[in-house]
Simulated scan of single mutants.
Amino acid sequence: MATEVRGVVATGAERPVEVTTVRVPEPGPGEALVRVQACGVCHTDMQYRDGGVSDEFPFLLGHEAAGVVEAVGSDVTDPVVGDFVVLNWRAVCGRCRACRRGRPQYCFDTHNATQPMTLRDGTPLSPALGIGAFAEKTLVAAGQCTKVDPSARPEVAGLLGCGVMAGIGAAVNTGAAGPGDSVAVIGCGGVGDGAVTGAVMAGARRVIAVDTDPRKLEWAREFGATHTVDAGRTDPVAVIREVTDGFGADLVVEAVGSPRTYEQAFYARDLAGTVVLVGVPTPDMRLNLPLLDVFARGGALKSSWYGDCLPTRDFPTLIEMSLQGRLPLEKFVTEQIELGEVESAFGKMRSGDVLRSVVML
């Protein structure tokens, strides 16, 4: 029997979201029903609302979530009922060519729940990133549930479900930041500050935060940035070079997703340095770099998928670090809100007034 819950639904491009009744089916094979406790408001949710991801409306928004497993399909042995889990949008298949080569973080056949959640009239909903967690309960693939220490606060734990993990992973997993490195991060929202945090965790000697918003630069300092650059007032490439003895940074994380800032990242790195793109571009964007410059500078140009994370490996470790006081996840939470305040949270996100609004259920 399906369960009726409240959920936040986007019915059309750039229309205000609605809190409405959502029908959630009992879990079938390979599925899990999760009672959502907290879900962060991410830029990706706003992109779904605005029609920037696809036109498969209506969308059930929300994906950066933590909660408790209430039921599982008959064939599911992990997770089990009662587990406290962080939801992820890359449930690995274990069978594709990446998984078979021991690289499940690059799984090419990730999956979601098979059964659709619907509106009361039976209209199927498209869950954001296969999760749909701006709802009191959601149905996901069992592999999208990662068990973590239940003593973690849900509003903090859920942030690993997307933005913060993407940023930390961009610096640590994709960029391989290490002790003594110089790391520059361009764009200091939730993902960028995650990258700042990851660089600090990795022991970087210099962490240079770049943004045009003074508030975001102050947030970056709180996460451990040793230097900040207001790109609206000065040339960030020149400042990064000055801070790094004229050489450029060992690693530059681009957390904006635009050709202009990517070009800045490219020229702000040291010879044989690394650029990691974790900011999400739009389909119309194009990059124009002299091929000779690409050849002459050497190093690596990488893209980071979800911080190249493996949830079963990374989520429990990062939660443990948070509980030990070695990872300040709580600093990412600007405010706690209710389901009916998601539309307002989008406005605050656009204006840069929040790092993360978190819906509490």
Rank of each mutant, 00 (worst) to 15 (best):
V237I: 14
V9W: 00
L125Q: 02
G40F: 05
R326G: 15
G352Y: 02
T312S: 13
T244M: 15
A249W: 04
F223Y: 11
A10C: 09
V243S: 03
K348R: 12
M285E: 08
L277Q: 10
E338T: 14
R356Q: 04
G273M: 03
Y106R: 11
L61F: 09
V294K: 10
A296N: 06
T197P: 14
V81F: 02
L87Y: 11
D353W: 06
R260G: 14
L125T: 06
G194S: 03
V253L: 01
G52Y: 14
S258V: 15
V86L: 08
L61E: 04
A13V: 09
K147M: 08
L292E: 11
A170Y: 01
I186L: 04
I131C: 05
S126H: 13
R326E: 07
P79V: 06
P124A: 06
P29I: 09
A38I: 01
Y262S: 12
L119H: 02
G161W: 09
V34F: 05
L60Q: 03
P58Q: 11
G180I: 06
A296D: 15
A231C: 08
A272R: 15
Q115L: 09
V92N: 11
S303P: 12
E4P: 05
A166R: 06
T21H: 04
T312F: 12
A65W: 02
G246Y: 15
T138M: 00
L289I: 14
G325T: 13
D245C: 10
E56D: 09
R100I: 04
Q115D: 05
A199Q: 02
L129A: 14
G73R: 15
P29H: 09
S344W: 07
A157R: 07
D284P: 06
D149F: 05
G28Y: 07
T110N: 12
P259W: 12
L119A: 02
F332D: 13
V185Y: 01
W305C: 10
Y306V: 05
R356C: 04
V86C: 10
L129F: 14
P25D: 05
P104K: 12
V183T: 03
V17I: 07
V92C: 07
V22I: 05
A249I: 15
D284M: 14
R269V: 11
M360D: 11
T123H: 03
L277V: 08
L327F: 13
E14D: 14
T334G: 13
F108Y: 09
E263A: 13
P283T: 05
L291D: 13
C39R: 04
G143Y: 01
G347D: 03
L125H: 06
P328L: 07
P127R: 07
A113R: 04
D83T: 03
I131M: 11
K302D: 11
G12I: 10
P214Q: 05
I208Y: 00
D78K: 11
E14R: 15
R101S: 09
A238S: 13
A195E: 03
V41P: 06
E341Q: 12
E218G: 08
F223T: 00
V196I: 11
A296Q: 15
